[in-house]
């Protein structure tokens, strides 16, 4: 599913702070895209818009044939949990749920058949090397492990799109690199559209396409 952003404008603080102005962009299906930019430049905002978590002031976002900007909040929530996997900088695992429960939460929310998603979750955990830790609670895991669980959570519903916001931001360099490898290889092997917001240059090596947020626009290109 292509993601098409047309004429997106977004301001915060009641219009005082302009983030995007007439932004246009296309993210092709199956590609790995990296969005670079300084802290506060609007990388996260862009991901939020694409995930339907936030709405632009004007403009349109189309994912596949769905005009996300025309859905209401509930429809967007449901669209999100079916078609988009989200990986956060600070993992945001739910501390009271086990690894397995964290991963399967979204499928459960969607009312899916337990057998299927449990199998998928197991396969994913196996891939991530965490199968033996499926019944542990997140606070027993290291940062890298937590983020791998978060990735599994993002993948379990078999979304076409994975959005990752600084997935390595809270990890040390070594772990971060491993994470980048994992996330991109997973996206590629499964044929997902991966959009990663980061300020890590390492990420560029994995990208098909690189964008930079600059002057309220998204500028395509390689390098900074």
């Amino acid at each position: 599913m292509d993601i098409v952003l047309s004429d997106i404008s977004k301001t915060y603080s009641g219009g005082d702070r302009v983030i995007f102005k007439d932004l246009d962009a296309v993210f092709r299906a199956g590609q790995v895209s990296v969005i670079l930019g300084k802290s506060g430049s609007g990388k996260s905002s862009l991901l939020n818009l694409m995930a339907g978590i936030d709405l632009p002031d004007s403009g349109q976002i189309r994912i596949g044939s769905t005009r996300v900007t025309e859905l209401d909040d509930t429809q967007r929530s449901i669209f999100r949990r079916r078609h988009i996997g989200f990986v956060f900088q600070s993992f945001n695992l739910i501390p009271v749920l086990t690894v397995m429960e964290n991963i399967t939460l979204v499928s459960q929310l969607d009312g899916q058949v337990p057998g299927e998603y449990r199998d998928r979750a197991k396969a994913l955990l196996d891939t991530m090397g965490l199968l033996d830790r499926q019944n542990e609670f997140p606070d027993r895991l290291s940062g890298g492990e937590q983020q791998r669980v978060a990735l599994a959570r993002a993948l379990v519903n078999q979304p076409q799109i994975i959005l990752a916001d600084e997935p390595t931001g809270n990890l040390d360099a070594g772990t971060g690199a491993g994470m980048l490898d994992l996330i991109t290889s997973q996206a590629r092997s499964l044929g997902k559209t991966l959009i990663m917001a980061t300020h890590s240059r390492d990420a560029m090596d994995h990208a098909d396409k690189i964008f930079r947020v600059q002057d309220n626009h998204l500028i395509p290109g390689r390098g900074i």
Partner: peptide, 16 residues
């Protein structure tokens, strides 16, 4: 709040 925020980001609806 944080928990609910995460759930919302993961796709839980307001009603839920």
């Amino acid at each position: 709040r944080k928990l609910n925020g995460t759930l919302r980001a993961l796709g839980a609806t307001r009603q839920e």
